[in-house]
């Protein structure tokens, strides 16, 4: 199960190795070649010799997580967040640290020992610690180094058409590119860019695009859905189960009109249920790609996920299939009409 394998892997920004190795093994039999670049992006190429537009499909391998910033004399570990995490979600979670996946928990003072007033306020980051069971600093030093990265330990599970797990943003995009490369033959060169460091400032993907110089790029993402109690309908941004979300404009990019039209046409023709992403908050690698060199037409399609950037998010697998169908449909248009 590809999504399970990918989402349970560790891949906090700049430490995407486990994810990269899974992807390499998955795509190898189906692509012309793959390579890594200076940043650590993995690029898989299919149909390189074909004529027609050069297309980049981009998704990022990295996920938000934690970085160990101090080893206390007590053996407890202080940490900071890598990428955007609401600090209030951290307490009372299981984590794993570093390459050897040292298990730990994020603890807090028991409720019995708290003042009433304390409970009303969120626990600040500098009052949270990871406990790995080390009795003192010396013991901790044998297991953990400063700068080590940690993730949540959430397991993937599927209930009907819904899936829950961590790092859907953006392992679902990685999975979609992998499956497209496995299932499809293309009439034009397609570059699957599995990018690093999206969560810390859209750092990776555009560097790959700089070398590839594609005619167009499509970013496949997991995006936030807020179709939950407490949000008015006009604040949902996306709705789970209503199909893949097409971005018109976010804080990093305005989707290129030509691609946008093509996507809508493909959706209509193939009767693919879709929705617009109904906010312009948040940015993706497409923004950085679009500004490479003389400019690269770019677009973003995403699968709505509730509780994104937290230990457990939820998505609809029909939306995921819809995302793939939309890319396939658009590719059929590209094959016919060019770009």
């Amino acid at each position: 199960m590809l999504l399970k394998k990918l989402t349970e892997a560790m891949g906090v920004s700049s430490n995407e190795d486990e994810v990269r190795e899974i992807i390499k093994a998955e795509v190898e039999p189906y692509v012309d070649r793959y390579y890594t670049d200076m940043m650590g992006n993995l690029i898989a190429v299919k149909g390189e010799d074909k004529s027609g537009p050069r297309v980049v499909l981009s998704a990022h391998m990295d996920e938000v997580g934690l970085m160990i910033t101090k080893l206390e004399d007590s053996g407890l570990l202080k940490f900071k967040t890598v990428g955007g995490i609401d600090e209030r979600i951290l307490v009372s979670k299981q984590v794993q640290i570093g390459k050897s996946k040292i298990p730990g928990v994020i603890g807090a003072k028991a409720i019995h020992l708290q003042q009433k007033e304390e409970q009303k306020k969120p626990i600040p980051l500098n009052k949270l610690y990871i406990d790995i069971g080390a009795k003192n600093k010396e013991e901790a030093e044998k297991l953990v180094e400063l700068g080590d990265l940690a993730t949540f330990t959430t397991k993937y599970s599927q209930i009907g058409e819904y899936a829950t797990g961590k790092a859907f943003d953006d392992r679902l995009g990685c999975a979609a590119i992998i499956e497209l490369m496995q299932e499809e033959e293309f009439d034009f060169p397609v570059y699957g860019v599995f990018a690093v460091q999206e969560e810390v400032g859209l750092r990776g993907s555009a560097r790959a695009a700089y070398a590839i110089e594609p005619d167009l790029a499509i970013e496949l993402e997991g995006t936030s859905a807020s179709d939950v109690p407490g949000t008015e309908k006009h604040g949902y941004s996306t709705t789970v189960g209503e199909g893949p979300a097409i971005t018109v404009m976010d804080s990093s990019v305005i989707t290129h009109k030509k691609i946008l039209k093509g996507l809508l046409k493909a959706a209509e023709k193939n009767e693919i249920k879709y929705q617009y992403r109904r906010t312009n908050v948040g940015g993706t690698d497409a923004g950085m790609i679009s500004l490479v060199k003389e400019g690269i037409p770019a677009a973003v399609i995403s699968v709505p996920c509730r509780y994104i950037h937290s230990p457990v998010s939820l998505m609809n697998l029909d939306d995921y299939q819809g995302l793939k169908a939309l890319v396939k449909g658009y590719f059929a248009e590209l094959e016919k009409e060019g770009f």
């Binding site: 970085m67 910033t69 967040t81 890598v82 180094e145 400063l146 700068g147 810390v200 400032g201 750092r203």
Partner: peptide, 8 residues
Amino acid sequence: IEPYPSPR
């Protein structure tokens, strides 16, 4: 050793 969670 100085850890930096953000590249900025």
